[in-house]
Design a protein around this nucleic acid. Structure first.
Lengths: 236, 236
DNA sequence: TGTCAAGCTGGAACGACGTTCCAATGCTCT
DNA sequence: AGAGCATTGGAACGTCGTTCCAGCTTGACA
Protein backbone atom coordinates (compact mmCIF):
# COMPACT_ATOMS: atom_id res chain seq x y z
CA UNK A 1 0.00 0.00 0.00
CA UNK A 2 1.68 3.12 -1.15
CA UNK A 3 0.91 5.21 1.89
CA UNK A 4 4.44 6.49 1.96
CA UNK A 5 4.25 8.23 -1.38
CA UNK A 6 5.58 11.59 -0.24
CA UNK A 7 4.42 12.61 3.16
CA UNK A 8 6.44 10.70 5.72
CA UNK A 9 5.63 13.12 8.50
CA UNK A 10 3.24 15.50 6.89
CA UNK A 11 5.97 18.10 6.62
CA UNK A 12 4.61 19.62 9.82
CA UNK A 13 1.43 20.54 11.61
CA UNK A 14 -0.22 23.23 9.50
CA UNK A 15 -0.24 26.72 10.88
CA UNK A 16 -3.43 27.80 12.59
CA UNK A 17 -4.61 30.65 14.74
CA UNK A 18 -4.74 28.40 17.76
CA UNK A 19 -1.23 27.12 17.28
CA UNK A 20 0.00 30.68 16.91
CA UNK A 21 -1.78 31.95 20.01
CA UNK A 22 -0.59 28.99 22.01
CA UNK A 23 2.99 29.56 20.90
CA UNK A 24 2.63 33.22 21.76
CA UNK A 25 1.51 32.38 25.29
CA UNK A 26 4.45 30.03 25.66
CA UNK A 27 6.83 32.67 24.44
CA UNK A 28 5.35 35.27 26.77
CA UNK A 29 5.71 32.88 29.69
CA UNK A 30 9.30 31.97 28.95
CA UNK A 31 10.93 35.12 27.68
CA UNK A 32 8.56 37.77 28.92
CA UNK A 33 6.57 40.52 27.34
CA UNK A 34 9.41 42.02 25.37
CA UNK A 35 10.42 38.64 24.03
CA UNK A 36 7.30 38.14 21.98
CA UNK A 37 8.52 39.02 18.52
CA UNK A 38 7.06 38.06 15.21
CA UNK A 39 10.50 36.81 14.24
CA UNK A 40 10.93 34.76 17.41
CA UNK A 41 7.40 33.49 17.05
CA UNK A 42 8.07 32.55 13.45
CA UNK A 43 11.21 30.66 14.38
CA UNK A 44 9.35 28.90 17.16
CA UNK A 45 6.78 27.77 14.62
CA UNK A 46 9.40 27.02 11.95
CA UNK A 47 8.00 29.49 9.50
CA UNK A 48 8.34 33.13 8.49
CA UNK A 49 6.74 36.27 9.88
CA UNK A 50 4.60 36.69 6.80
CA UNK A 51 2.80 33.40 7.32
CA UNK A 52 1.63 34.49 10.75
CA UNK A 53 -0.08 37.52 9.32
CA UNK A 54 -2.35 35.27 7.31
CA UNK A 55 -3.94 34.02 10.53
CA UNK A 56 -3.57 37.01 12.80
CA UNK A 57 -4.22 40.67 12.17
CA UNK A 58 -1.26 42.10 14.02
CA UNK A 59 0.48 42.17 17.33
CA UNK A 60 -2.35 43.93 19.13
CA UNK A 61 -4.83 41.26 18.15
CA UNK A 62 -2.33 38.55 18.98
CA UNK A 63 -1.87 39.88 22.50
CA UNK A 64 -5.62 40.20 22.91
CA UNK A 65 -6.08 36.61 21.79
CA UNK A 66 -3.37 35.37 24.14
CA UNK A 67 -4.95 37.24 27.03
CA UNK A 68 -8.38 35.94 26.20
CA UNK A 69 -7.14 32.36 25.94
CA UNK A 70 -5.51 32.46 29.35
CA UNK A 71 -8.46 34.17 31.00
CA UNK A 72 -10.88 31.73 29.43
CA UNK A 73 -8.88 28.83 30.82
CA UNK A 74 -8.73 30.44 34.25
CA UNK A 75 -12.47 31.01 34.61
CA UNK A 76 -13.24 27.63 33.05
CA UNK A 77 -11.32 25.83 35.78
CA UNK A 78 -13.31 27.68 38.39
CA UNK A 79 -16.64 27.03 36.70
CA UNK A 80 -15.98 23.29 36.74
CA UNK A 81 -16.11 22.92 40.49
CA UNK A 82 -19.43 23.66 42.15
CA UNK A 83 -18.79 25.71 45.29
CA UNK A 84 -20.44 25.11 48.61
CA UNK A 85 -21.56 28.71 48.90
CA UNK A 86 -21.66 31.77 46.68
CA UNK A 87 -18.93 33.25 48.83
CA UNK A 88 -16.72 30.28 48.07
CA UNK A 89 -17.62 30.67 44.44
CA UNK A 90 -16.45 34.25 44.40
CA UNK A 91 -13.26 33.29 46.14
CA UNK A 92 -12.74 30.55 43.56
CA UNK A 93 -13.09 32.96 40.64
CA UNK A 94 -10.85 35.47 42.32
CA UNK A 95 -8.15 32.98 43.12
CA UNK A 96 -8.39 31.51 39.65
CA UNK A 97 -7.49 34.87 38.18
CA UNK A 98 -4.96 35.50 40.90
CA UNK A 99 -3.20 32.24 40.08
CA UNK A 100 -3.41 32.86 36.35
CA UNK A 101 -1.61 36.15 36.78
CA UNK A 102 0.99 34.52 38.97
CA UNK A 103 1.54 31.88 36.33
CA UNK A 104 1.61 34.38 33.49
CA UNK A 105 3.11 37.59 34.83
CA UNK A 106 2.54 39.41 31.55
CA UNK A 107 -1.18 38.97 32.07
CA UNK A 108 -1.43 41.81 34.57
CA UNK A 109 -0.31 44.46 32.13
CA UNK A 110 -2.27 42.93 29.31
CA UNK A 111 -5.48 42.77 31.27
CA UNK A 112 -5.15 46.43 32.14
CA UNK A 113 -4.39 47.30 28.55
CA UNK A 114 -7.26 45.25 27.14
CA UNK A 115 -9.74 46.59 29.64
CA UNK A 116 -8.75 50.20 29.27
CA UNK A 117 -8.41 50.15 25.50
CA UNK A 118 -11.61 48.28 24.76
CA UNK A 119 -13.35 47.92 28.11
CA UNK A 120 -15.96 45.51 26.92
CA UNK A 121 -14.15 43.23 24.57
CA UNK A 122 -14.25 39.50 25.08
CA UNK A 123 -12.19 39.42 28.26
CA UNK A 124 -14.33 41.55 30.55
CA UNK A 125 -17.62 39.71 29.98
CA UNK A 126 -15.93 36.42 30.81
CA UNK A 127 -14.82 37.66 34.19
CA UNK A 128 -17.95 39.67 34.75
CA UNK A 129 -20.16 36.66 34.08
CA UNK A 130 -18.21 34.38 36.40
CA UNK A 131 -18.41 36.79 39.29
CA UNK A 132 -21.93 37.90 38.52
CA UNK A 133 -23.40 34.44 38.77
CA UNK A 134 -22.11 34.11 42.28
CA UNK A 135 -23.34 37.58 43.18
CA UNK A 136 -26.79 36.59 42.00
CA UNK A 137 -26.60 33.33 43.94
CA UNK A 138 -25.64 35.35 46.98
CA UNK A 139 -29.08 36.91 47.00
CA UNK A 140 -28.13 40.44 46.04
CA UNK A 141 -31.21 42.27 44.76
CA UNK A 142 -31.26 42.61 41.00
CA UNK A 143 -30.91 46.37 41.03
CA UNK A 144 -27.53 46.06 42.71
CA UNK A 145 -26.09 43.29 40.55
CA UNK A 146 -24.13 45.60 38.35
CA UNK A 147 -22.67 47.63 41.19
CA UNK A 148 -21.69 44.67 43.31
CA UNK A 149 -20.22 42.67 40.46
CA UNK A 150 -18.29 45.64 39.12
CA UNK A 151 -16.82 46.40 42.52
CA UNK A 152 -15.62 42.83 42.93
CA UNK A 153 -14.21 42.68 39.43
CA UNK A 154 -12.35 45.94 39.80
CA UNK A 155 -10.87 44.94 43.10
CA UNK A 156 -9.77 41.56 41.75
CA UNK A 157 -8.13 43.04 38.70
CA UNK A 158 -6.46 45.80 40.66
CA UNK A 159 -5.13 43.55 43.37
CA UNK A 160 -4.08 40.68 41.16
CA UNK A 161 -2.28 43.11 38.92
CA UNK A 162 -0.15 44.56 41.60
CA UNK A 163 0.71 41.23 43.13
CA UNK A 164 1.96 39.94 39.82
CA UNK A 165 5.53 41.06 40.21
CA UNK A 166 5.77 39.80 43.77
CA UNK A 167 6.29 36.25 42.59
CA UNK A 168 9.67 35.45 41.14
CA UNK A 169 10.10 33.32 38.06
CA UNK A 170 11.73 30.56 40.06
CA UNK A 171 10.19 27.23 40.92
CA UNK A 172 8.83 25.77 44.10
CA UNK A 173 11.03 26.73 46.98
CA UNK A 174 13.60 29.25 45.84
CA UNK A 175 10.94 31.80 45.11
CA UNK A 176 9.93 31.85 48.75
CA UNK A 177 13.38 32.99 49.70
CA UNK A 178 13.36 35.60 46.97
CA UNK A 179 10.00 36.72 48.18
CA UNK A 180 11.16 37.15 51.76
CA UNK A 181 14.12 39.18 50.57
CA UNK A 182 11.89 41.20 48.34
CA UNK A 183 9.49 42.06 51.14
CA UNK A 184 12.37 42.93 53.40
CA UNK A 185 13.66 45.30 50.78
CA UNK A 186 10.26 46.93 50.39
CA UNK A 187 9.88 47.25 54.13
CA UNK A 188 13.33 48.77 54.44
CA UNK A 189 12.68 51.19 51.60
CA UNK A 190 9.44 52.33 53.19
CA UNK A 191 11.15 53.02 56.46
CA UNK A 192 13.54 55.36 54.74
CA UNK A 193 10.81 57.52 53.28
CA UNK A 194 10.54 61.12 54.41
CA UNK A 195 8.83 61.10 57.85
CA UNK A 196 6.98 64.30 57.03
CA UNK A 197 5.60 63.11 53.71
CA UNK A 198 5.02 59.46 54.47
CA UNK A 199 4.13 58.97 58.14
CA UNK A 200 1.47 56.36 57.46
CA UNK A 201 3.45 54.30 55.00
CA UNK A 202 6.35 54.22 57.43
CA UNK A 203 4.02 53.08 60.17
CA UNK A 204 2.85 50.03 58.24
CA UNK A 205 6.27 49.14 56.88
CA UNK A 206 6.49 46.30 59.34
CA UNK A 207 3.15 44.84 58.35
CA UNK A 208 4.27 44.39 54.78
CA UNK A 209 7.18 42.19 55.83
CA UNK A 210 6.10 38.61 55.94
CA UNK A 211 2.52 39.20 54.89
CA UNK A 212 0.88 36.65 52.63
CA UNK A 213 -0.34 37.98 49.30
CA UNK A 214 -3.03 35.40 48.94
CA UNK A 215 -4.32 36.03 52.43
CA UNK A 216 -4.37 39.78 51.89
CA UNK A 217 -6.11 39.28 48.60
CA UNK A 218 -8.83 37.20 50.24
CA UNK A 219 -9.12 39.65 53.12
CA UNK A 220 -9.95 42.34 50.58
CA UNK A 221 -12.60 40.12 49.03
CA UNK A 222 -14.04 39.49 52.48
CA UNK A 223 -14.20 43.22 53.04
CA UNK A 224 -16.22 43.77 49.87
CA UNK A 225 -18.49 40.82 50.57
CA UNK A 226 -19.18 42.22 54.03
CA UNK A 227 -19.93 45.57 52.46
CA UNK A 228 -22.33 44.01 49.99
CA UNK A 229 -24.14 42.18 52.75
CA UNK A 230 -24.27 45.30 54.89
CA UNK A 231 -25.58 47.66 52.23
CA UNK A 232 -27.78 45.51 50.06
CA UNK A 233 -30.43 43.53 51.91
CA UNK A 234 -30.05 39.98 50.67
CA UNK A 235 -33.15 38.22 49.46
CA UNK A 236 -32.21 34.81 50.82
CA UNK B 1 25.40 98.56 32.13
CA UNK B 2 26.30 96.05 29.51
CA UNK B 3 23.81 93.41 30.49
CA UNK B 4 22.93 92.90 26.85
CA UNK B 5 26.37 91.79 25.80
CA UNK B 6 25.39 88.65 23.95
CA UNK B 7 22.38 86.91 25.26
CA UNK B 8 19.25 88.60 23.98
CA UNK B 9 17.02 85.62 24.63
CA UNK B 10 19.31 83.06 26.13
CA UNK B 11 19.14 80.93 23.01
CA UNK B 12 16.40 78.96 24.69
CA UNK B 13 15.39 77.50 27.99
CA UNK B 14 18.01 74.91 28.83
CA UNK B 15 17.01 71.28 28.73
CA UNK B 16 16.13 69.72 32.05
CA UNK B 17 14.54 66.57 33.31
CA UNK B 18 11.44 68.47 34.36
CA UNK B 19 11.01 70.11 30.99
CA UNK B 20 11.40 66.74 29.31
CA UNK B 21 8.91 65.00 31.56
CA UNK B 22 6.43 67.82 31.17
CA UNK B 23 6.76 67.70 27.40
CA UNK B 24 6.31 63.94 27.52
CA UNK B 25 3.07 64.29 29.46
CA UNK B 26 1.83 66.86 26.98
CA UNK B 27 2.70 64.59 24.08
CA UNK B 28 1.00 61.64 25.72
CA UNK B 29 -2.10 63.71 26.29
CA UNK B 30 -2.30 65.03 22.75
CA UNK B 31 -1.15 62.21 20.52
CA UNK B 32 -1.60 59.22 22.77
CA UNK B 33 0.61 56.50 24.05
CA UNK B 34 1.99 55.49 20.69
CA UNK B 35 2.78 59.07 19.80
CA UNK B 36 5.42 59.50 22.46
CA UNK B 37 8.58 59.11 20.41
CA UNK B 38 12.04 60.27 21.22
CA UNK B 39 12.12 61.94 17.86
CA UNK B 40 8.79 63.69 18.35
CA UNK B 41 9.83 64.64 21.84
CA UNK B 42 13.11 66.03 20.53
CA UNK B 43 11.33 68.09 17.91
CA UNK B 44 8.92 69.36 20.53
CA UNK B 45 11.87 70.51 22.59
CA UNK B 46 13.81 71.79 19.57
CA UNK B 47 16.71 69.46 20.11
CA UNK B 48 17.91 65.98 19.12
CA UNK B 49 17.18 62.58 20.61
CA UNK B 50 20.69 62.30 22.00
CA UNK B 51 20.30 65.33 24.24
CA UNK B 52 17.32 63.78 25.97
CA UNK B 53 19.34 60.77 26.97
CA UNK B 54 21.62 62.97 29.00
CA UNK B 55 18.75 63.71 31.38
CA UNK B 56 16.71 60.56 31.15
CA UNK B 57 17.77 56.94 31.21
CA UNK B 58 15.42 55.62 28.57
CA UNK B 59 11.81 55.36 27.60
CA UNK B 60 10.87 53.16 30.54
CA UNK B 61 12.17 55.67 33.03
CA UNK B 62 10.57 58.50 31.10
CA UNK B 63 7.16 56.86 31.28
CA UNK B 64 7.64 56.16 34.95
CA UNK B 65 8.54 59.79 35.57
CA UNK B 66 5.55 61.02 33.60
CA UNK B 67 3.26 58.71 35.55
CA UNK B 68 4.76 59.78 38.84
CA UNK B 69 4.42 63.45 37.98
CA UNK B 70 0.75 63.14 37.14
CA UNK B 71 -0.03 61.01 40.18
CA UNK B 72 1.83 63.37 42.44
CA UNK B 73 -0.21 66.28 41.14
CA UNK B 74 -3.43 64.33 41.56
CA UNK B 75 -2.88 63.39 45.19
CA UNK B 76 -1.48 66.84 45.97
CA UNK B 77 -4.73 68.49 44.93
CA UNK B 78 -6.63 66.18 47.21
CA UNK B 79 -4.30 66.75 50.14
CA UNK B 80 -4.81 70.49 49.93
CA UNK B 81 -8.46 70.43 50.91
CA UNK B 82 -9.22 69.24 54.41
CA UNK B 83 -12.20 66.92 54.25
CA UNK B 84 -15.11 66.99 56.66
CA UNK B 85 -14.79 63.30 57.42
CA UNK B 86 -12.35 60.50 56.68
CA UNK B 87 -14.93 59.03 54.34
CA UNK B 88 -14.97 62.26 52.39
CA UNK B 89 -11.20 62.19 52.40
CA UNK B 90 -11.11 58.75 50.85
CA UNK B 91 -13.65 59.80 48.26
CA UNK B 92 -11.50 62.83 47.49
CA UNK B 93 -8.38 60.76 46.92
CA UNK B 94 -10.31 58.26 44.84
CA UNK B 95 -11.94 60.90 42.69
CA UNK B 96 -8.64 62.69 42.31
CA UNK B 97 -7.12 59.61 40.73
CA UNK B 98 -10.30 58.93 38.79
CA UNK B 99 -10.19 62.39 37.29
CA UNK B 100 -6.49 62.17 36.59
CA UNK B 101 -7.04 59.03 34.57
CA UNK B 102 -9.90 60.64 32.73
CA UNK B 103 -7.69 63.60 31.90
CA UNK B 104 -4.73 61.44 30.93
CA UNK B 105 -6.11 58.24 29.41
CA UNK B 106 -2.64 56.75 29.01
CA UNK B 107 -2.32 56.79 32.79
CA UNK B 108 -4.45 53.68 33.26
CA UNK B 109 -2.11 51.42 31.35
CA UNK B 110 0.94 53.06 32.80
CA UNK B 111 -0.24 52.71 36.37
CA UNK B 112 -0.85 49.04 35.83
CA UNK B 113 2.54 48.64 34.22
CA UNK B 114 4.39 50.56 36.89
CA UNK B 115 2.64 48.74 39.70
CA UNK B 116 3.12 45.29 38.26
CA UNK B 117 6.69 45.80 37.11
CA UNK B 118 7.97 47.45 40.27
CA UNK B 119 5.09 47.29 42.72
CA UNK B 120 6.63 49.56 45.25
CA UNK B 121 8.31 52.22 43.23
CA UNK B 122 7.51 55.85 43.86
CA UNK B 123 3.94 55.77 42.58
CA UNK B 124 2.43 53.22 44.93
CA UNK B 125 3.58 54.84 48.18
CA UNK B 126 2.11 58.15 47.09
CA UNK B 127 -1.32 56.64 46.62
CA UNK B 128 -0.97 54.32 49.57
CA UNK B 129 -0.07 57.17 51.87
CA UNK B 130 -2.96 59.35 50.76
CA UNK B 131 -5.51 56.62 51.33
CA UNK B 132 -3.85 55.30 54.45
CA UNK B 133 -4.04 58.59 56.31
CA UNK B 134 -7.79 58.63 55.87
CA UNK B 135 -8.07 55.00 56.89
CA UNK B 136 -6.21 55.80 60.07
CA UNK B 137 -8.41 58.82 60.69
CA UNK B 138 -11.40 56.56 60.20
CA UNK B 139 -10.50 54.73 63.37
CA UNK B 140 -9.49 51.42 61.83
CA UNK B 141 -7.37 49.47 64.33
CA UNK B 142 -3.69 49.56 63.49
CA UNK B 143 -3.46 45.84 62.75
CA UNK B 144 -5.90 46.27 59.88
CA UNK B 145 -4.39 49.37 58.33
CA UNK B 146 -2.50 47.51 55.68
CA UNK B 147 -5.42 45.31 54.67
CA UNK B 148 -7.97 48.10 54.52
CA UNK B 149 -5.71 50.52 52.69
CA UNK B 150 -4.60 47.90 50.20
CA UNK B 151 -8.16 46.91 49.44
CA UNK B 152 -9.14 50.50 48.77
CA UNK B 153 -6.10 51.16 46.65
CA UNK B 154 -6.60 48.06 44.56
CA UNK B 155 -10.23 48.83 43.95
CA UNK B 156 -9.47 52.39 42.98
CA UNK B 157 -6.76 51.42 40.55
CA UNK B 158 -8.81 48.61 39.06
CA UNK B 159 -11.94 50.68 38.62
CA UNK B 160 -10.30 53.84 37.43
CA UNK B 161 -8.30 51.84 34.92
CA UNK B 162 -11.28 50.31 33.28
CA UNK B 163 -13.24 53.49 33.16
CA UNK B 164 -10.46 55.26 31.34
CA UNK B 165 -11.56 54.40 27.85
CA UNK B 166 -15.17 55.26 28.51
CA UNK B 167 -14.50 58.94 28.14
CA UNK B 168 -13.92 60.19 24.66
CA UNK B 169 -11.21 62.67 23.80
CA UNK B 170 -13.75 65.32 22.95
CA UNK B 171 -14.54 68.39 24.97
CA UNK B 172 -17.44 69.36 27.15
CA UNK B 173 -20.65 68.31 25.50
CA UNK B 174 -19.89 66.12 22.52
CA UNK B 175 -18.38 63.44 24.71
CA UNK B 176 -21.70 62.94 26.45
CA UNK B 177 -23.29 62.00 23.19
CA UNK B 178 -20.40 59.70 22.35
CA UNK B 179 -20.71 58.18 25.75
CA UNK B 180 -24.42 57.46 25.37
CA UNK B 181 -23.75 55.84 22.02
CA UNK B 182 -20.91 53.89 23.47
CA UNK B 183 -22.99 52.54 26.33
CA UNK B 184 -25.77 51.68 23.93
CA UNK B 185 -23.31 49.73 21.85
CA UNK B 186 -22.01 47.86 24.88
CA UNK B 187 -25.51 47.11 26.04
CA UNK B 188 -26.46 45.86 22.61
CA UNK B 189 -23.35 43.73 22.35
CA UNK B 190 -24.05 42.13 25.70
CA UNK B 191 -27.56 41.25 24.69
CA UNK B 192 -26.22 39.32 21.73
CA UNK B 193 -24.00 37.11 23.81
CA UNK B 194 -24.72 33.39 23.94
CA UNK B 195 -27.65 32.91 26.35
CA UNK B 196 -26.13 29.65 27.62
CA UNK B 197 -22.71 31.07 28.35
CA UNK B 198 -23.65 34.56 29.48
CA UNK B 199 -27.04 34.57 31.23
CA UNK B 200 -25.97 36.99 33.93
CA UNK B 201 -24.24 39.46 31.69
CA UNK B 202 -27.28 39.54 29.43
CA UNK B 203 -29.50 40.15 32.41
CA UNK B 204 -27.64 43.28 33.46
CA UNK B 205 -27.17 44.61 29.93
CA UNK B 206 -29.86 47.17 30.57
CA UNK B 207 -28.27 48.45 33.75
CA UNK B 208 -25.12 49.40 31.92
CA UNK B 209 -27.01 51.69 29.60
CA UNK B 210 -27.18 55.13 31.09
CA UNK B 211 -25.27 54.38 34.25
CA UNK B 212 -22.91 56.99 35.62
CA UNK B 213 -19.28 55.94 35.90
CA UNK B 214 -18.55 58.29 38.72
CA UNK B 215 -21.57 57.17 40.67
CA UNK B 216 -20.72 53.52 40.18
CA UNK B 217 -17.16 54.22 41.21
CA UNK B 218 -18.29 55.87 44.43
CA UNK B 219 -20.81 53.10 45.06
CA UNK B 220 -17.92 50.65 45.02
CA UNK B 221 -16.00 52.77 47.49
CA UNK B 222 -19.07 52.90 49.73
CA UNK B 223 -19.23 49.12 49.57
CA UNK B 224 -15.66 48.76 50.78
CA UNK B 225 -16.07 51.40 53.45
CA UNK B 226 -19.13 49.57 54.73
CA UNK B 227 -17.14 46.35 54.75
CA UNK B 228 -14.33 47.94 56.70
CA UNK B 229 -16.75 49.30 59.26
CA UNK B 230 -18.51 45.95 59.51
CA UNK B 231 -15.43 43.79 59.92
CA UNK B 232 -13.01 45.99 61.82
CA UNK B 233 -14.39 47.52 65.01
CA UNK B 234 -13.57 51.19 64.76
CA UNK B 235 -11.86 52.80 67.72
CA UNK B 236 -13.68 56.10 67.48
C1' DT C 1 41.60 87.85 29.91
C1' DG C 2 42.94 83.42 27.97
C1' DT C 3 42.73 78.45 28.61
C1' DC C 4 41.03 74.17 29.63
C1' DA C 5 38.14 70.51 31.46
C1' DA C 6 33.66 69.26 32.28
C1' DG C 7 28.79 69.47 31.32
C1' DC C 8 25.71 69.48 27.75
C1' DT C 9 23.94 69.41 22.94
C1' DG C 10 22.05 67.45 18.65
C1' DG C 11 22.51 65.02 14.43
C1' DA C 12 24.04 60.74 12.27
C1' DA C 13 24.10 55.91 12.46
C1' DC C 14 22.86 51.04 14.21
C1' DG C 15 20.19 47.09 15.16
C1' DA C 16 15.64 45.30 16.02
C1' DC C 17 11.07 45.60 15.54
C1' DG C 18 6.09 45.45 13.24
C1' DT C 19 4.43 45.13 9.00
C1' DT C 20 3.94 44.58 3.84
C1' DC C 21 4.87 42.39 -0.36
C1' DC C 22 5.21 38.69 -3.44
C1' DA C 23 7.10 34.65 -5.73
C1' DA C 24 6.78 29.94 -4.72
C1' DT C 25 4.32 26.04 -2.89
C1' DG C 26 0.71 22.87 -1.58
C1' DC C 27 -4.20 21.51 -1.90
C1' DT C 28 -8.77 20.71 -4.03
C1' DC C 29 -11.68 20.46 -7.23
C1' DT C 30 -12.93 19.21 -12.34
C1' DA D 1 -3.34 16.38 -15.45
C1' DG D 2 -4.22 21.11 -14.84
C1' DA D 3 -6.48 25.38 -13.24
C1' DG D 4 -7.54 28.09 -9.31
C1' DC D 5 -7.09 29.33 -4.69
C1' DA D 6 -5.47 29.10 0.04
C1' DT D 7 -1.26 29.24 2.37
C1' DT D 8 3.61 29.81 3.04
C1' DG D 9 8.06 32.04 4.24
C1' DG D 10 11.72 35.00 3.17
C1' DA D 11 13.10 39.60 1.59
C1' DA D 12 12.42 44.37 2.08
C1' DC D 13 10.54 48.92 4.06
C1' DG D 14 9.96 52.40 7.39
C1' DT D 15 10.13 53.57 12.21
C1' DC D 16 11.46 53.00 16.66
C1' DG D 17 14.75 53.08 20.93
C1' DT D 18 19.24 53.68 21.66
C1' DT D 19 24.31 54.72 21.03
C1' DC D 20 27.99 57.40 19.42
C1' DC D 21 30.65 61.31 18.94
C1' DA D 22 32.18 65.81 17.28
C1' DG D 23 31.19 70.18 18.53
C1' DC D 24 29.43 73.83 21.59
C1' DT D 25 28.76 76.32 26.00
C1' DT D 26 30.04 77.32 30.59
C1' DG D 27 32.51 78.32 34.69
C1' DA D 28 36.87 78.00 37.32
C1' DC D 29 41.46 78.93 37.55
C1' DA D 30 45.85 81.15 36.19
Amino acid sequence: MATRTRRPERRQEPLSRERIVSAAVELLDTVGEGGLTFRALAEHLATGPGAIYWHVEGKTELLAAATDAVVAAAVAVEAAESPDSPQDGIRAVALGLFDAIEEHPWLATQLATQLSRSPWGTVAPRIFESIGRQVRALGVPEGSWFTATSALMHYILGAAGQNAANTASAGTLGSDVDRAEFLDAVSAAWKELDPDDYPFTRAVADQVRGHDDREQFLAGIALILAGITAIHPLTT
